[in-house]
Design a protein around this nucleic acid. Structure first.
Lengths: 346, 346
DNA sequence: CTGTTAGCGCGTTCAG
DNA sequence: CTGAACGCGCTAACAG
């Protein structure tokens, strides 16, 4: 049915291999016959059969993207949705296809990473998982396929030798806190999450900024939610007394910050006049509601395109197999929720 | 490198075709040898080479999902992100892989639909595009590959004969408006969008409900935005005078409704006490901010799973090629933004 | 029930 | 520069 190189060969009066070579721009072919073949192929709307091609070249021209199962929960999609889009963008530019999957198929209980690679459906993987499971990792370390961890920094010892591209959450936590301190705040509540390396790093950044400014770290100022709007809301609601003394709040997620803002609103506590609030992520939504959210911008565009570009580099030039970790610095986005000038410490 | 059926054959002391048959659960094979082959394959962590398989069967076991280019804009991702997730869910259940793409690659200027199909990378397509372009459509009508339009109802004549699964937006517009009317409202502002068939249908539903209740349709009560939060905000902000008489607002998008709520808030107009607001989509976000948004639930789970299930059906049993359109009814989600009882008409 | 053989469509030697 | 021939890994007749 579909037109093949053989069909083109017949039409052009040459052999199939000449067609193949022409279509692949082999230098061995004379300009003249190449042009003729290309013209005919175009006329016939020829497209390579990707399967045949992949079978003989062992190249699929597809990249696998592994996302966490729960990326729709907790409002995570607001961040991962954007990440996903940037990835798509770069993948398109580099002319690959993108296959999306989770780490394992919960219906068949199959490991998707292993399957995609073993079946030769992908040439490389972008893995955006908080923590890859050991089965996957064991498999990948044997397979000779390029893969890159994106967003999440894998801290397990055995992974020190892998490609990782992520943001410097410690620095993010630091600049957020520093900003509040510079604004005159001394008692800063820290609303974080217990699960996830990145949150621990943000807390460390928070602590670092405090210590650097000679402010004692107060355990009572730590609150923990699950990253969601609701947990931001209830964490604040159930701890309003904290804000009799505290004058600022650092939420480790924008969506928690929005929940917090809502809680303050319902309690008639004005932001930023009475409490300064800073978020983390810089999701678009923070730009919508009043007061506009001051936050830490996650460099999602940078890490996405860096990851894909590096992955494709690894795929297309096997030799340079020097693993490296790329750490991108987040930046401060000052809007309204912290006030723009010094607030009056109580 | 990778283990093949030939390798298994050698290990099992049988021919390669016996291995193939065993692995494919052919009834021709004796229980005994089949079990042995399966055991050895398992031991060797065998996986089929998808490319070789696809080459000989002409089945890729992948489904292509085509999304609109702008699905990250206007807050559309809040709806499409959810749609995407439900699709992924069903695809996983039915054990296919999912390749995501846009209609055309803007860098290479290639039509992705044509390419994926012609290259045999997918067995079928889910197309979630407001309006497919004629090049794609022309191609698809010749190609003998199953495809289903999802979410967007294609109204072009030539497409009457295709599979389409979408929600009944007319009905959605109707029940939203009816709800407001039942609550006692007579002057209902309609904030819609000019581009998109679905919005026209929602407007028609609005008009139908009005007429049915003997309320005159007032052209001045129509407002148009671009579906985004910002346009919801500014549409209301710039037309506050309308609400001296009007007592209700029907926004054709939740995210516009949230923008509208924010505008009312900043003008100290209380919702629902002074103005009743109803949205459309039922995005998760509507559940967060006070007043919680009353809205029309889009049956995204239903249409997603219906679409995938039907597509797979078409893929796996070529014969039954009866095209059909499935229209799913949206439903009302009553929360706070319209009030729960009759409001007092001015 | 099992082995042999012939493709699937393409890339790639190896000759010429 | 071009063609003939082979193989990638698997499925599917066709024999036995």
């Amino acid at each position: 049915m579909a037109v093949t190189t053989k069909d083109i060969a017949k039409l052009a009066g040459v052999s199939q291999s000449t067609v193949s070579r022409s279509l692949n721009r082999s230098p061995l072919i004379s300009k003249k016959t190449q042009e003729r073949v290309l013209r005919i192929a175009k006329e016939q709307n020829f497209e390579f059969n990707a399967n045949a091609r992949s079978l003989s070249t062992n190249i699929s021209n597809s990249i696998g993207l592994i996302f966490p199962d729960d990326y729709m929960e907790f409002g995570l999609n607001l961040y991962f949705g954007a990440l996903h889009t940037h990835i798509r963008e770069t993948v398109e530019k580099l002319n690959y296809d993108l296959i999306i999957g989770f780490e394992k198929n919960k219906y068949t209980d199959t490991n998707t990473i292993r399957r995609l690679v073993a079946q030769k459906k992908v040439d490389g993987l972008i893995i955006a998982l908080p923590r890859i499971n050991s089965e996957s990792m064991e498999f990948l370390s044997k397979a000779k396929i390029p893969f890159i961890f994106l967003h999440f920094h894998q801290v397990q010892d055995c992974l020190s030798n892998t490609n990782q591209i992520y943001a410097d959450h410690l620095h993010g936590g630091y600049i957020a806190t520093k900003h509040l301190i510079d604004l005159g705040h001394r008692k800063i509540v820290c609303l974080s999450s217990k699960d996830g390396q990145e949150f621990e790093e943000r807390r460390n950044g928070y602590i670092k900024a405090l210590i650097e400014s000679g402010i004692a770290v107060n355990e009572n100022l730590f609150l923990f939610g699950d990253r969601s709007f609701k947990s931001g809301f209830s964490s604040i609601n159930e701890n309003l007394k904290l804000f009799k003394k505290a004058t600022a709040l650092f939420c480790h997620t924008d969506i928690m910050a929005l929940g917090a803002l809502e809680a303050f609103k319902l309690s008639n506590i004005r932001v930023p006049e009475e409490i300064a609030v800073i978020g983390y992520d810089d999701i678009e939504l923070g730009n919508y509601f009043s007061p506009l959210l001051t936050t830490v911008h996650q460099p999602r565009e940078e890490i996405s395109s860096l990851a894909i570009e590096r992955l494709v580099q690894l795929i297309e030039s096997n030799p340079r197999r020097n693993h490296k970790e790329i750490v991108v610095k987040p930046s401060l986005v000052i809007r309204e929720s912290c006030g723009t000038k010094l607030s009056l410490p109580k």
